[in-house]
């Protein structure tokens, strides 16, 4: 009953907001048998991914034959995988193989990195797994790769330059790593959008929390958000100071509902972090809910929890 209510309100809300907000809501009926959110615990990155995809109806529910897919991990920093500053490379490799097995014509991976992009791609281990898995890794280091898109649903951010690979893709998958973050407080699925845009300076000088929510209103929503919480940076984020910043929750969360997913991720974060974060401090999650990007009320969702 509750879930149906959620769907109803979502559809109504979506209709009210027009075509720009047809991302999550419109696609939900197609997978109505699947849970809204899947959480997996206790396995290796690839095994947890397969469990989660299985629970959501398999990769075929998200990736269709012949599609050009973009996978957007967090590759922001010149750090080894053990430092949990970047998305787990094993997870990215496994996801590429899944997409290709579902018949994707091309799987590309990129991030607008903070540190030197070539160092990031290398140190993160992601460049190597992408090549090994048969994907393509694209540069994101130059403004010429980014094209202007309008964000009619944004509160403050009305247009932004987004990487052309995403604009041209048939579908994209958002694959952040869960981290502490000095500026945004928490770095997860919504925050990971900052790696698809060119000009991040306006995010910081404008209103960071609101801009993060605003960029998530882009009408091309990810077909799936997958949170890598195999390792987690519990403090000194987003790049970390030493290995001591890293906890190992060995979890993976997946959902189309980005707000719910970040809400759940915050709960995981607080379980492992020395300093708990208040939901209100991670302002972008609340702003996302206000923009009807999803729900923070996990109790109203159909969550499947899997222990391995």
């Amino acid at each position: 009953m509750k879930r149906r209510d959620f769907l109803k309100t979502s559809v109504v809300a979506g209709a009210a907001f027009g075509m720009s907000l047809n991302g999550i809501e419109a696609s939900v009926p197609a997978v109505h048998a699947a849970p809204d959110l899947v959480a997996v615990m206790g396995g290796e990155p690839e095994a947890m991914l397969l469990k989660a995809l299985d629970a959501m109806g398999g990769i075929g529910s998200f990736v269709k034959k012949g599609q050009k897919i973009v996978i957007k991990p967090n590759i922001g920093w010149d750090r080894a995988p053990e430092r949990a500053a970047n998305t787990n490379p094993e997870l990215i490799g496994a996801l590429i193989r899944q997409c290709l097995s579902a018949g994707a014509s091309k799987v590309t991976v990129f991030d607008h990195t903070c540190d030197d992009w070539q160092k990031c791609y290398k140190s993160s281990g992601i460049e190597a797994v992408v090549k090994a898995a048969g994907g393509a890794i694209l540069p994101g280091n130059n403004e010429s790769y980014y094209k202007e898109v309008k964000l009619p649903g944004g509160t403050k951010l009305k247009s932004v330059k987004i990487h052309e690979a995403l604009i041209e893709a048939d579908a994209w998958i958002n694959v952040p790593i869960l981290k502490h973050h000095g500026g945004a407080k928490l770095s997860c699925a919504m925050k990971n959008y900052m790696g698809i845009v060119w000009d991040r300076q306006i995010f910081h000088s404008g209103d960071l929390q609101q801009y993060i929510a605003d960029i998530c209103t882009w009408d091309k929503k990810p077909v799936l958000n997958i949170i890598d919480a195999y390792r987690m940076m519990a403090k000194n984020g987003p790049q970390g100071r030493s290995i001591a910043d890293v906890q190992t929750p060995k979890q993976l969360l997946a959902s189309r509902n980005i707000v719910a997913l970040d809400t759940a991720a915050l709960a995981v974060f607080n379980q492992f972090a020395p300093q708990k974060l208040d939901m209100a401090a991670v302002g972008h999650i609340g702003h996302g809910a206000s923009l009807k990007l999803g729900s923070t009320e996990l109790s109203k969702l159909n969550i499947e929890r899997i222990k391995m």
Binding site: G182, G183, K185, H204, D207, N236, G237, Q239, R241
Partner: peptide, 28 residues
């Protein structure tokens, strides 16, 4: 000046020499 979160500097600090401390409300 704006009363909004930023932290870009602390984010880019590799040694945590620049780090965020509580300010007003939820701001750091």
């Amino acid at each position: 000046t704006n009363g909004t979160d930023c932290g870009a500097c602390a984010e880019h600090c590799p040694t945590t020499a620049v780090h965020m401390v509580p300010y007003t409300g939820t701001l750091t």
